[in-house]
Write a protein that binds this DNA or RNA. Sequence first.
DNA 1: ATCACTTTGTGCATCGCTTCACAAAGGCAC
DNA 2: GTGCCTTTGTGAAGCGATGCACAAAGTGAT
Lengths: 232, 232
Amino acid sequence: MIRRIPQARDRGIPDATVARLPLYLRALNGMAERGTATVSSEDLALAAGVNSAKLRKDLSHLGSYGTRGVGYDVQYLIYQISRELGLTQDWAVAIVGVGNLGRALANYGGFASRGFRIAGLLDADPHVVGDRIAGLVVEHTDELESVIQKRGVSIVVIATPATAAQQVCDRVIAAGVTSILNFAPVVLAVPDGVDVRKVDLSIELQILAFHEQRKANGGPIMAEEWPDGVVM
Amino acid sequence: MIRRIPQARDRGIPDATVARLPLYLRALNGMAERGTATVSSEDLALAAGVNSAKLRKDLSHLGSYGTRGVGYDVQYLIYQISRELGLTQDWAVAIVGVGNLGRALANYGGFASRGFRIAGLLDADPHVVGDRIAGLVVEHTDELESVIQKRGVSIVVIATPATAAQQVCDRVIAAGVTSILNFAPVVLAVPDGVDVRKVDLSIELQILAFHEQRKANGGPIMAEEWPDGVVM
DNA sequence: ATCACTTTGTGCATCGCTTCACAAAGGCAC
DNA sequence: GTGCCTTTGTGAAGCGATGCACAAAGTGAT
């Protein structure tokens, strides 16, 4: 049973590489704005905060776009990475849940800049439906399926309370969506073929707290036992 | 030069494990609320969305807290994970940048629930300074160092525009902070010993777009060349 | 006390990512 | 062209995380 046959342009790009491409793209855009025409792997790696060998290996997965002795053409590389990431096309995004976070996301400028267009804002609360946010009118979640289909939404951002997230998730998947960005603090159950990425503030803080504790104490406060008064 | 001597209770917990502990903790808290007293690695793994062998290996890094043939005591495991993550103590957090996102974060309930207390909101805009958000009055960033020192802030959340992020970062580090959660779309340069975690909406969307494109087309639209009209 | 059953904790093989180190490839000066 | 310099692209080693598979350890029934 053959797993995968490596080819000249191997189309299987490692996940770790994909996760860094947006970083490179951002650094390259900065350089392009400052008028830089060419960049070495060393300089680009520095700007992106990674090791230069890793950068070169990452880029080598896309193809051989550098020139030895010179470096990479900034504009050309921007185009190639954008194309690889699918940013040369327009993605319609719907945000479900227009609370504090949903509003902040809707107003976040970084969306439109890179081929992402907010095509719908939805909420279950009748008091919020009808509000105008970032140029869009909030619609009721009853319209979820129709909004997705009519406007060609292919990416859904879930910014609902935790209790509603799985239900919304199931509905958007039934409507054909296969890419979900989840801000609700729950592990979404999805069928194969659906991609879920999770952003969780609370988890990030807990990871920081772990390391902060290590730096301060060299470890947890109490090594083994329960504190006084706690009974098993 | 000795790197690290492995011991009975090895204090070096893998990063991948640390990143999953908050997930287990959340699942366990849900079970505790529903009155579950004991849970098997199989069930907990299911709730947390991971493989049961991985879960057991993760927990084994904390110690031997399970009972063979029975499973794990929910309350006891909650306590042990909380202690390991440093959640049995109180962490003072300051949020710098009170725009859309900063406001949303300040109002986000998940903060207080797990030992994180917002001890300060700061912004450079005089129009925002003085606003009352989530029970706190926004202070001017001039006060940054004094707020950090007086209120024992050990974790700083940067929610400023990209242009201000590095400057804020430098100042909080100079003030003694070594744990930073960065929402600004920049790679922060920090000295050794400082932990930065990054949350970047735009990067998450780009990763989703990559996979979505693969699902739809089997790859980028054009394989190799520049589109017509683009000149190198 | 013994046996059958359940579930943990872990040795081990494997996999994927990272990093080093260098040959290959291009530019530039003469 | 030749030789020197720079920088890419990549083979190979190293490292950490994953998942299988099973012995060890506990429960409960008889």
